[in-house]
Design a protein around this nucleic acid. Structure first.
Lengths: 257, 257
DNA sequence: CATAGTGGTAAATAATATTTACCTATGCTC
DNA sequence: GAGCATAGGTAAATATTATTTACCACTATG
């Protein structure tokens, strides 16, 4: 239920929250790499200009989020974050830091283009049949308006493309990304809807990728994969912009009463 | 002199600062329009969940920035911000609110395209001579590496284009924008430098605009103006990204010591 | 085993924000 | 013109958050 006023209650950040944000940003930006030992609490508190108890509050939050490991008598260390290429802690960290998410998409776009190119060169008959089958399922889901089925087919297609690349390292690296995407992080089809009301554009893009692979055209496959991720990024940005506009419009309406 | 540590001192925002930010955002977004009376201090403090003295601190800051007018016994009003189409208070407000600046550029792009189109249709012989002269000055400044001269010629060209439109309203509306741009707000050629090291691209764009006007091609003139502002926007975004990356890189280097 | 450096805990103090009370200005109604 | 309601203006007492200070426990090293 929307509040009757456009003025929002001021959520005053605590000292600990601000410290958490700064340290998380440094983890996201790769400045604080996993395994690295942080300066001692006394030193860090002094550097950041906060009291030691408040710094400890922040470190507690980071420990709860599996981003640091605190060892009594030894020190505080950045936790291993990429045990499987993309730990839940790291991914949820990306989700909390807007620009980092777009770095993640940029990385993913490159990997998917790489996978699509290899797949176009190496796909076996079995791979190609699998891809064709998934595209068939996608069309059926689209015709039936089966959102959940389309979502599942989406994951299957991307996994099938990577499998068809036959690069074991890439398969393992992407597997954890897909696992976590499947769990709902970063997968907001509502944002995608901002540029693709019916889902037809997504379907066309998926089909273009599969076709290029099946027809053995590496360049076209890579291009199609990039175009797809590019579309996803634009949709998300546009969706976020639209959400901001809608929030502003709602506030204007509240003041008009 | 850069600090020896990548950890920044935590600048803990006060309650008043947070309130200022929210109210300013609402002014920028057009939710709080000029002349509008704000809710009473007691009501507003309650809505925002802060104490009245703290709200008053925030209103004091806004008054100092000429964004609100406080009248004893009457109320608090949003100040007239666009007395000359773009008051210093409004423009510096845009400068403090990142996304609003891009809205400003979007608006400006439209106005400059509009002006260029009209200019291509209506420019007199005198107007065209003036444009050709300015472009000549620009080339000379570019060849001599005269940054200040190039900057000044930039302003002259944009003013000449608008003058050539012969639309009095547009001339007046844009005059204050140019005045304030001339005063240094929003004019960061260092950011422009991120995509145009030598300044050649800017020179070419300016020349394309002038040529289209002199040759009486409204569509080409509007297109060239848009392309120019589009380039400016991309440069500024890229420059800001680069600044963020350089900050991150510097922090990484500090930790490597 | 002693020492230095680190994390862990807690009480006293300082800084910031809230609550409460009251004063002054303005506009409207009678 | 007086009275009233609503609004801004000021300040002291109280509450909350953060800092300072002190001390304890753990770990690694010589």
């Amino acid at each position: 239920m929307e509040p009757a006023t456009p003025f929002e209650r001021v959520g005053h950040e605590t000292i600990a929250e601000v410290v958490v944000e700064q340290l998380e940003s440094m983890i996201v930006d790769g400045i604080l790499k996993e395994g690295r030992k942080l300066p001692s609490e006394r030193e860090l508190a002094e550097m950041m200009g906060v009291s030691r108890p408040k710094l400890r509050d922040a470190l507690q939050v980071l420990e709860d989020r599996n981003l640091v490991v605190v060892r009594h008598g030894e020190g505080t260390f950045i936790a291993p974050l990429t045990g499987r290429a993309m730990s839940p802690a790291l991914l949820s960290l990306y989700a909390r830091h807007g620009e980092a998410f777009y770095d993640y998409l940029e990385y993913r776009s490159e990997q998917e283009a790489f996978a699509a190119r290899l797949a176009a060169e190496r796909a076996t008959t079995s791979d190609k049949e699998r891809l064709a089958e998934i595209i068939g399922d996608m069309k059926e889901c689209w015709e039936k308006g089966d959102e959940e089925g389309a979502r599942h087919a989406d994951f299957r297609l991307h996994a099938a493309v990577v499998d068809a690349s036959h690069n074991v390292t890439l398969i393992h690296m992407m597997a954890s990304i897909y696992d976590l995407t499947r769990q709902g992080l970063f997968y907001n089809r509502d944002l995608l809807r901002s540029m693709d009301g019916s889902g037809k554009a997504l379907l066309d893009q998926h089909e273009a990728i599969a076709k290029a692979i099946i027809e053995g055209d590496p360049q076209r496959a890579a291009q199609a994969a990039r175009a797809h991720l590019d579309f996803v990024e634009k949709s998300i940005r546009k969706g976020e912009e639209q959400q901001r506009r809608e929030l502003s419009a709602r506030k204007r309406r509240q003041l008009a009463l």
